[in-house]
Design a protein around this nucleic acid. Structure first.
Lengths: 150, 150
DNA sequence: ACATATCCTACGAAAATGCTTGGAATTGAG
DNA sequence: CTCAATTCCAAGCATTTTCGTAGGATATGT
């Protein structure tokens, strides 16, 4: 039940873009530096996100990437589905899968994975990039408070 | 976010043992046949479950495996943790991981994975093998009903 | 004695992962 | 116009993981 680095790093990158939303195109180099990730590898990940319509790119000098929609309109689930494929612990609970298990109707273990799938989906689709930015801001304020009074 | 076949097949095997609980040791060969899995491969999976104390074995002719506890006392989460390792989409939300991310305290993406972890754990630990057996029985009855009246 | 089992170790093919490499195309700034 | 910054694209590649298979040793009821 592990996420690959695609989903892991990719969400970090999208969060970074969300934090700089409205500041024009952000070069991937700066994202990679802040998030301490390989720029070339990030490039591959963000390529998929662009094709999926989640980010927009501006080529050439002073170019970079921006979110294609407002942070409030991008769910973590949207990002993860692009980078990791369908959210489904086993193939037989993947709706898009044509040749799923014949026993599907009366398969009890399948029911377990269906519940897990629903549960993960619920969490990922309930969090937007804006939510994450607000969390970050809260954490920042809490940290300042701490530093000031101790 | 995929489960490996270890967790997938392993849970099927445990469910099979649960359905035959109280009938003495069940040879792996019969489990493998019913669940349509490789016996040799299942052997490796159940070996881990035995070492973890979830199943007991009886060697020799007329031997086999039985659950070490009642189906009601074995949670799906127990089985999955043995077969798949800690339930944690990324390492930095794995409590057992010593060298987790330094930024842990103020990492916003980490919070997302923490929520996902909690959500999966909640589901897997809320279902016991007995629950699965009851579901199977319900499905069986519903199916008979259907076959009888149509 | 023998058939039926568990137990154990090792091997191995195939796929996925996590990048790196190298270069082409685009474009704003000097 | 030139140059540096940047996206875009395709391929390669080492490592790890996955998903088993193979072969045999050990135990035990009949």
């Amino acid at each position: 039940m592990k996420l690959s680095t695609k989903g892991h790093y990719g969400l970090q990158a999208m969060f970074d873009l969300a934090q700089h939303y409205g500041q024009g195109p952000i070069p991937l180099k700066s994202v990679a530096e802040r998030q301490e990730l390989s720029e070339h590898y990030l490039e591959q990940l963000i390529s998929g996100l662009r094709k999926a319509g989640l980010v927009k790119s501006v080529r050439g000098a002073q170019g970079g990437y921006t979110l294609a929609k407002e942070p409030a309109d991008i769910k973590v689930g949207d990002v993860i589905r692009v980078l990791e494929g369908p959210i489904a612990p086993v193939d037989c609970v993947n709706d898009a899968d044509t040749e799923s298990c014949q026993k599907a109707d009366h398969c009890v273990t399948r029911n377990v994975w269906e519940k897990v799938k629903d549960s993960i989906t619920e969490v990922l689709d309930s969090i937007t990039l804006e939510d994450m930015c607000k969390d970050a801001e809260k954490a920042r304020l809490a940290n300042n408070y701490y530093m000031y009074y101790i």
